[in-house]
Design a protein around this nucleic acid. Structure first.
Lengths: 156, 156
DNA sequence: CTTGACCTTCCAGTAGATGGAAGCCCTATC
DNA sequence: GATAGGGCTTCCATCTACTGGAAGGTCAAG
């Protein structure tokens, strides 16, 4: 199997597969010509990674999960603890976004959106007491070429 | 006013204020010694930016908002349109995160979290059909030194 | 005059890829 | 055998929005 095949079968872009090799996350053996020799084991690990990433685990957490994945003696409490951390992060983020959404909804609702310059949104930005330090932008549309994915790159 | 003062008054870190100057977002005049000459106008724009960023607008959107902010002839529909886009992004992201949270909650609940290796979370990662292409990590704890901010760096 | 707090610029690094260039490798066809 | 093409390799640059740190200029106080 060449890298193109694993890419297709694992659902990860070729570039990503190579990237995971670069950073030492999963490193397949090489053939004499330098090509990556991709066996089933490698394929399974990549698919595992894809799923872990899709659940929002960081690369470093994936590294840990992968070592636990390979450890037949692992205790499930280790895994559960990592998952709990991620769950807490997600729930926290949801709360923050809901607050943002509420504020914006209110502003949008109050703005006439016509030709005139009067605008509650602008007035708010010009005067509102900041509710906290600047947060990063949310779920910006990305240059990803994958149309099926609703994207969520750069939630930074 | 020196940069340290504007930083304190606007709530933006000094580094960030300089960064916004670097990228041409807001550029104060300079004094003979090269120091930034920070007037009230500058301060207001920085505060405006801080609030816009805290609502999740990207730097490029902030650039637009800032030009609208300075345009006494602007139409509120322009502003509203930008705000609506951001609102849609946020709501979309909330939905995605709620789905993730649900999945993880289920997995965590089913995992015993003891010394034994059996683990529904791992089994899921090992076999689940990916529900989509890998998504970026969510709301990872960041190297930010601001303890009051609940952080949300790198929602990528 | 020295100290120390400011200010300046510039370079590097963060996460997690992604795009592209330059250059092998391999197979098929002419 | 030459050539065309596709796939593979590496390496470098780019993206977002900063942040950290080094090297060095400036300024007010003591």
């Amino acid at each position: 199997m060449n890298i193109g095949d694993v890419s297709e079968r694992s659902g990860l872009p070729v570039k990503t597969v190579r990237y995971y090799d670069d950073i030492g996350l999963v490193c397949p053996p090489r053939r004499a010509n330098g090509y990556r020799e991709s066996g089933n084991d490698y394929l399974h690990k990549l698919a595992f990674l894809g799923r872990a990433r899709s659940l929002g685990f960081s690369i470093e957490e994936c590294r840990t999960l992968l070592s636990l994945y390979e450890d037949r003696e692992r205790s499930s409490s280790n895994v559960k603890s990592i998952a709990r951390t991620q769950l807490a992060r997600i729930d926290q983020k949801i709360e923050e976004l809901q607050a943002l959404s509420g504020t914006l909804q209110d502003l949008v609702r109050r703005c006439r959106g016509d030709e005139r310059p009067e605008c509650p949104i602008m007035e708010d930005l010009a005067q509102r007491r900041a509710s906290g330090r600047a947060k990063p932008p949310i779920s910006r549309p990305s240059p990803k070429r994958d149309p099926e994915t609703l994207d969520s790159r750069s939630m930074q």
